[in-house]
Computed example of a mutant assay.
Amino acid sequence: MLPYKTRKRLSILALVIGLPLYIVVAVSVVNWAEARWGMLPWWGALVIYVGLGFLWALPLKPIFLGVGQPDPDAPRE
């Protein structure tokens, strides 16, 4: 398991750099698919975007786990 400070830094990096890049790639892929096969119905686009919205968090779940909690390695007062 990664140390708390490393997980915190990685989570900030993932949110500030990784998530915007993922959004650009996801929208580009959906636009490419719509250009190739035609427009999706509104509910189809909604399903795809909601699915992609959850998909980015799955591999990063171990990094985000417990980051909002106080540092467990910090000295107790």
Rank of each mutant, 00 (worst) to 15 (best):
R9Q: 14
I17Q: 07
A74C: 06
L55T: 10
M1F: 10
E34A: 06
P41V: 06
F54H: 13
E77L: 11
Y4K: 04
V24I: 13
I12T: 15
Y22P: 04
V30I: 09
G18H: 07
A26G: 03
L40I: 00
E34F: 05
Y4I: 04
P41M: 02
Y22E: 02
A26W: 01
N31S: 09
R9D: 12
W56Q: 13
Q69M: 13
G38V: 09
Q69V: 09
V24G: 06
P75W: 06
L19E: 08
W43K: 06
G68A: 00
I63T: 07
W56L: 06
Q69H: 10
P20C: 10
K61N: 08
G18K: 03
P20G: 11
L58E: 11
Q69R: 14
A45P: 00
G68Y: 01
I63Q: 02
V30C: 04
R36D: 11
L19V: 14
P72G: 01
L15I: 13
P70S: 05
G66E: 05
A35H: 12
P3S: 12
M39K: 15
G53Y: 07
P20W: 05
K5P: 06
P72R: 03
A26K: 03
W37Q: 05
P70I: 01
M39A: 15
L10Y: 06
L60N: 06
W32N: 08
P70W: 03
P3E: 08
G18S: 09
S11H: 02
T6V: 15
L46M: 06
Q69S: 13
L19Q: 11
Q69E: 13
F54R: 14
K61P: 00
V29W: 01
T6D: 10
I23T: 10
W37K: 01
G18N: 05
L19R: 12
G38R: 06
S28I: 00
G44L: 01
L13R: 14
A14C: 11
P75K: 14
W32Y: 11
F64T: 01
M39E: 15
A33T: 07
E77D: 12
Y4E: 04
A26S: 11
P62R: 03
I63L: 14
P72N: 01
A33C: 05
M1A: 14
D73S: 12
G53E: 09
Q69N: 13
L40Y: 03
A35S: 15
S11K: 01
L10H: 00
K5T: 14
A74D: 07
P70H: 04
L55K: 08
L10C: 02
I23K: 04
L15Y: 12
D71S: 03
V27E: 07
E77Y: 09
